[in-house]
């Protein structure tokens, strides 16, 4: 886009869109406002969709505010959110702590990979939700079962991305380390792992959303608390305003978790800046 602007003769600039380079943002905002207005017209404006089927944007916003203090299905919205976050954090941390080393082992010790990857690949294709019944059977319908589901969803991206990041490294770098006398293990820890942080952190971010999504599914199916449980309870009571307030919270918290992990992993990427600008 920048190229076309530079190429455009100066005299023709006046023929451009009315808001200049802000035009895309204006079009985008207009489209968003349009969608919300259509939503409002369909619900509150004309009752084409009755309040039992779909809540208006204003009702949903009110409910979102009200749920902050009034309990629904036993807890307020922040309490449901905290229950979800607690389960997510346990499963996610376990996935990172076990998954990244396993990915590194897969990359470094080929026989271990050959031995474990058929089992890993077979289990990986069973979606996290399909583990919900057996997780409940093993651990009861509590926090542990749901944390296990988060773990199952977040574990594969940790393993796969670490493995891929380590195997796509420049072999010259690794050989250089070996030449100056580093052992295989030392090369892994001091050279290969730091050099592959971009790939690993990409996996950690995929794991965030995978785990969060799986948790919502698990909470829909079983539990007495949590955001997934909240929207399910809203559905069973025929209260779409509660569902939408819950969905918005799920979306916002998902974004916050992603930003959090992005911010926490950024220091690990800082050292690359010098390299990349030096190219």
């Amino acid at each position: 886009m920048r190229v076309t602007e530079q190429q455009r003769p100066v005299g023709q600039i006046r023929n451009g869109p009315p808001f200049g380079r802000h035009m895309p943002a204006v079009v985008g905002m207009t489209a968003l406002v349009f969608v919300v207005v259509v939503w409002w017209i369909l619900t509150a404006g004309t009752n084409i969709m009755s309040p039992q089927v779909m809540a208006s944007p204003t009702d949903s916003a009110w409910t979102l505010g009200r749920l902050m203090v009034d309990p629904f299905a036993g807890s307020t919205l922040p309490e449901h959110a905290l229950a979800s976050l607690n389960r997510w954090a346990r499963g996610y941390l376990a996935a990172v702590i076990l998954g990244v080393p396993l990915g590194a082992i897969f990359a470094w010790y080929r026989d271990v990979r050959s031995a474990l990857s058929p089992i890993f690949e077979t289990l990986r294709y069973i979606p996290p939700f399909a583990w919900v019944p057996i997780a409940i059977l093993w651990f009861g319908p509590g926090t542990t079962a749901q944390a296990i589901v988060v773990f199952i969803a977040a574990f594969p991206p940790c393993v796969i991305n670490t493995h891929r990041a380590l195997t796509t490294l420049d072999p010259t770098v690794l050989r250089a380390a070996r030449t100056v006398g580093a052992s295989r293990l030392a090369t892994l820890i001091r050279v290969a792992l730091p050099a592959s942080t971009p790939g690993i952190t990409a996996g950690l971010r995929i794991a965030v959303s995978n785990g969060w999504m799986a948790l919502m599914g698990a909470e829909l199916i079983v539990g007495q608390k949590g955001l997934g449980f909240l929207i399910n309870a809203g559905g069973e009571n025929g209260q779409p305003d509660v569902i939408i307030a819950g969905m918005v919270s799920i979306g916002i918290l998902g974004l916050i978790l992603d930003t959090l992990v992005l911010t926490l992993t950024r220091p690990m990427l800082q050292w690359r800046k010098g390299i990349e600008s030096g190219d």
Binding site: V27, A31, M213, L220, N232, I250, I252
Partner: peptide
């Protein structure tokens, strides 16, 4: 790019909500 400019924000607003979270609403509908 105008279609992109119009659709993209809607897409970005809806995307953080997992498809599974639509299940209760889908059942109501």
């Amino acid at each position: 790019r105008w279609i992109r400019a119009a659709v993209n924000p809607i897409f970005q607003v809806l995307r953080p909500i997992p498809p599974i979270a639509w299940i209760p609403l889908a059942i109501l509908w």
